[in-house]
Design a protein around this nucleic acid. Sequence first.
RNA 1: GGCGGGUUAGCCAAGUGGUAAGGCAGAGGUCUGCAAAACCUCUAUGCUCCGGUUCAAAUCCGGAACCCGCCUCCA
Length: 469
Amino acid sequence: MSVRFFDTRRRALVDFVPMTPGEVRMYTCGPTIYGLAHIGNFRTFLFEDLLRRYLKYRGYKVTQVMNITDIDDKTIRGCNAKGIPLDEYTAPFRTAFFEDLDVLRIERAEHYPSATHHIAEMVEITQKLLGSGNAYKAEDGSIYFRIATFPRYGALSHMNLAELKVGARVNSDEYEKDAVSDFALWKAWDPQDGTVFWDTPLGRGRPGWHIECSAMSMKYLGQTFDIHTGGVDNIFPHHENEIAQSEASTGVPFVNHWLHAEHLIVEGRRMAKSLGNFYTLRDLTARGIPAVAVRYLLLSTHYRQQLNFTFEGLEAARNAIGRLRDFRQRLTEITGNGDGHSEFAELITQSRTGFEASLDDDLNASGGLGVLFEFLREANRRMDAGLVNRNDAIEALKFLDSLDTVLSVISDDKSSDSSDAQIEQLIRDREHARATKQWARSDEIRAELAAKGVILEDTPGGTRWKRKL
RNA sequence: GGCGGGUUAGCCAAGUGGUAAGGCAGAGGUCUGCAAAACCUCUAUGCUCCGGUUCAAAUCCGGAACCCGCCUCCA
């Protein structure tokens, strides 16, 4: 069975067919670095991470591009308010973004192009569009794409321009445009832009927002590529505009599969900076919430489903991860020789098949997790019954680790430090106390360690310990 | 007004015709010095509501209610 994705343009589940067998080229809309990304933003980036990891799990060679938007209204406003150069303003947010990616265990893409480093490519496309009559220069020097020249406009979002409500968001200062729907490819310099401008064959100014994605995706992935993703809010107008610009300039299809992630909801409303109801990753980790719990929570709801964010949900995620990790730990402690039981191999095969069937079906991670926990319970049951030998356990660990290349929630970022030796000494003291039935002393040591976030578990094979997640 | 999505147990969440996965929380039990972990049992006669199709519907069709998102630079 092949991998299927829901394609926004076709509004249907379609088999994923890459242009080059075995290889995937995908473009994922990245952050605008005018502030810290919030976990709603990361929901989309985590979906893209899942997509990337699963494609790799399925054997594809993945080339992923994620743009970094470092030039737009907000970054310009920000740097001018502070009176510092644009790149100086955006640098700390760029750094923070990559730190957050690491903390959330999001795999790095192959390319992270910045808009400010691709002005020439954007100018080139704009010139082409001017030459072909798809774009025009307004009185103030700004250049707009003429939507009337692109009949397929609206094919992605399935919106009919004539039926759109003319909203309050149409700026009054955009009177230079021939039609309200025409969008900017190039914005002429305005005093409000301050020191932010480029002198180019198009004049002095800066690029519009949409053009960066066309320029950078095509530069790194070619005129046509396999997958383009983003949040649902990008469908219209951003991705619609990308299609228009790109296809009008190349004459070939831009993207084969469009995938969009639904929004994170908090208290019944979309999480957004403009609504002020957002949490950054740092807000949560500052509360002692492990980032991996955030990862688990955001991954555990299907990406096309709105996800209601709650702290209860984070707690549930944290506990679920604890159970997965305890299970993995238990497997590593299984001893006993002999050949693997064939029934156990069957259990693994069955579980793997179930997991893959779920993920193949439009990245159904919830279903995949269900399969994983069923495997966990059955394997625990057999371990309780003494039916699992060392070979079985090794196979189970391999299986778990292969699933974790996709989920990345089981392996811990364990950092053994100098306190480990001290902890282990206390455990030895306690074992001695237990051997001589000094229960009060034993419990005292356990309490002492618990205060340090260390949890003890007495097993027939001795005492093991772990840090509280 | 246009387009789209949603409503499944205390919470979260899978499930597109065959009689409700899974996680968390809770209750009881086995094991244990105690605890933890693990396992077992229990927790939706029912999937927003009303009709309809069908031997069979959470799933298909029609209608209603409520909620969310997009409608021009917001993941």
